[in-house]
Write a protein that binds this DNA or RNA. Sequence first.
DNA 1: CCCGCATTTGCACGCGCTTGCAGTGTCGAA
DNA 2: TTCGACACTGCAAGCGCGTGCAAATGCGGG
Lengths: 340, 340
Amino acid sequence: MSEKLFVSAQEVAERAGVSRSAVSRTFTPGASVSTETRRKVLEAAEALGYHVNELARGLMRNESGIVCLIVSDVATPYRSALLRELTLLLQNAGKVAMLINTDRSDGSVDRALRQAIRYRADASIMLSGMPDKSIAQLCLRSGQRLVLINRDDEQPGPLRINLDDDEAAGRVVTAFVRAGCRKLAFANSEAGTPSLMARERGFVAAANALGIKVSVERHGWTGYEAGKVLAQRMLTRTERPDAVFCATDLLACGFMDAARHQFSMSVPDQLCIAGFDDIEQASWSSYDLTTFAQPVSAIASKAVEWLSQPQPQPQNDDTICAQSIRLHAELVWRGSIRGG
Amino acid sequence: MSEKLFVSAQEVAERAGVSRSAVSRTFTPGASVSTETRRKVLEAAEALGYHVNELARGLMRNESGIVCLIVSDVATPYRSALLRELTLLLQNAGKVAMLINTDRSDGSVDRALRQAIRYRADASIMLSGMPDKSIAQLCLRSGQRLVLINRDDEQPGPLRINLDDDEAAGRVVTAFVRAGCRKLAFANSEAGTPSLMARERGFVAAANALGIKVSVERHGWTGYEAGKVLAQRMLTRTERPDAVFCATDLLACGFMDAARHQFSMSVPDQLCIAGFDDIEQASWSSYDLTTFAQPVSAIASKAVEWLSQPQPQPQNDDTICAQSIRLHAELVWRGSIRGG
DNA sequence: CCCGCATTTGCACGCGCTTGCAGTGTCGAA
DNA sequence: TTCGACACTGCAAGCGCGTGCAAATGCGGG
């Protein structure tokens, strides 16, 4: 039955005529082995098809090399793009990604996380999403390093990566105004995550500063369908907006489709639209959406970089390194806003 | 420095006043422990915040509970949808997903896979993509179980999950003909994966059986841009097709956008289009694409189901269970083909 | 009261690996 | 020649856990 599938360092040692320690050291960067011994070991290892058992190694070293990616809505364009970048970089850094899907909220999230703790993951990266800050707590208490992307929990310890959502929102107001729009609207979801709300606040504030009032509507999640519903609500009013900033590209796509196909409005002639994320679909010619680009690869590389650094002194004085990085969201100008 | 982060079974045992074996058995389903002992152990474990060390357990049991997902183009809608489903189901089955991204072809793939082997993954699921069958070999040789999705390697051992691509392609011919189309075309990528080629063969064969010739064009990968290029090639000819079957929804979206915006053609009046995968965007009203649905959740559940079964006798006689599952791709009828 | 049986429990070993420590060999300087 | 410095190497302990085996315990019948 369990018929000895893997070769162990012991066997490699025997074949190479050296001690088991020599084998171990050969595969430990920075250990002291002579070139000759190393050669013999590598040869034997190759011949036998030896692979270091990372489970045993992790057991000794007390670090597994596993980074777990905690994510909801994996199938969403922005989320999956970030996921792609992160896995790639982690691999290059010699780490390995464990995926925790938090879509179902029926306690399986908690179960999955505990699962990750059981594997002694060195770190967790939370790609935004669910507000469960207890999860973050659990990660930290089990000695993991934590990276929070687009979340704003005021907890010490983790690295927080955020965007300049509010300033970005201000810039889109300028663009709308320059295009001659005066009846601005903001289409948001009910998710209420910090970055979404920051965009809303920034937009409203910048417009108000110019003496322009903004009609705000919130509905559903950040998906396409919600965008359609928002359009139905906002475009059936007596006074239609002539420019709408959608908190998300998916919302924008839904909004635009409804505006065009259900209300026969022309974009950008009768309605200017802007989104946020710069998902692939934003560049498709049916949408040609002006939007803010999530600096996906910058986010990923900052995160992985931070994780690759040696543990920053885990002292318990009050200057706990509450690292926070703020990245810039570049406006990608396309055809959904007049004039460019 | 390494200040004892995790509690061990030993400590739990001491607090509960039992032996370490008792603790171990408490967390091993099916082991023999009295209710009283179990209660004491669970209580102590809870108080101490004990989590089984899955690394050590895997070392003993010689199975890690890790399933690795080998995937390229994670950010692609179909791929990420499948990923979502798989991770969810794996979690429910008490397993954990390790993600291997094979986008870069510069040997990092190989490195990542070896990484996975080092973690003694119990199984791998290859979500189609790259043709490197040597990778599959490596998985099998290291004792993993293997699931191949939408690939057709004729190797024994793995579970193969495929679709009825050729029959599906036949059904779309019928639909086109019924819509009054006679100049059929097939837009494919150059990737040449088995399922893509099966769709092409099936389409051409079914059309030929009706005495209709098909113009076939292949270009690039299976993305949106390739679809646009294909449209540019096929629609600049003197004799334009009046119906095109795209091997992929992304191709179809690109094709449709080019047809409408660059060639001012009306879909479906002047051109009927069908795709394959039923990605979310296919249902967006700008596309409203008739397409075949990948039975994503069926695929995922078949895969996880198979992995959850006890190892099917690993005998070495010639009746190696070369399991193969063929699923049905349902035609989702929308507005990109006339008459419904 | 004793004995056979079934259920629990503890002991001790080993999974495959890292690593501190002591031992071997080599070499140049004194 | 002697000696310290140095580069390797092997030994053995131990990481946290599962599990076979034997001892312990409980129980009912004789």
